[in-house]
């Protein structure tokens, strides 16, 4: 339905915060589903607690779009759990989105909405 977003697509709509956090939690290492939930929870100090339904709905789409992929599990892992890792494209999307957010923050600073204005 929705065409895959390419890294060069300038008009790409913002990511949902759920997707952003999932991508973010996969930057350091591949994780399994429950690991992603725990990681997001830690990072957000419990403010974002993902439910399984939300997580796997997102994982399904992210894999279809080619932003994440299945990664080999560590030898000692529970065989029922699969590990997911960022793809190159996923990493690019995350970077672009982060840049976009940074730009926004920058603009907010310039507009003196936020303290610590950058030097012009």
């Amino acid at each position: 339905m929705v065409p895959p977003v390419t890294t060069t697509d300038a008009s790409q709509p913002p990511l949902t915060h759920v997707v952003y956090h999932i991508l973010l939690s996969l930057t350091a290492a591949p994780r399994h589903g429950y690991g992603i939930i725990k990681d997001v929870e830690d990072r957000t100090h419990g403010r974002l607690a993902l439910e399984a339904g939300t997580l796997y709905g997102a994982i399904k789409r992210l894999r279809e779009d080619g932003w994440i992929e299945e990664a080999p599990a560590p030898a000692d892992a529970d065989r029922r759990r699969r590990y997911y890792a960022l793809t190159e494209m996923g990493r690019d999307v995350l970077r672009l989105e982060s840049e976009r957010l940074a730009e926004l923050v920058e603009m907010a600073r310039n507009a003196r909405v936020l303290p610590g204005s950058a030097s012009a």
Binding site: V2, V5, Q12, P13, P14, L15, T16, V18, V19, L50, E51, A52, G53, T54, L55, Y56, G57, A58, K60, R61, L62, D65
Partner: peptide, 20 residues
């Protein structure tokens, strides 16, 4: 209730972008 809602909503909804 949260789990069920997430499950139903996560079902093929536009979770990638645009916001579920």
């Amino acid at each position: 209730l949260r789990q069920y809602t997430a499950l139903v909503r996560g079902r093929g909804a536009a979770t990638t972008r645009g916001g579920g």
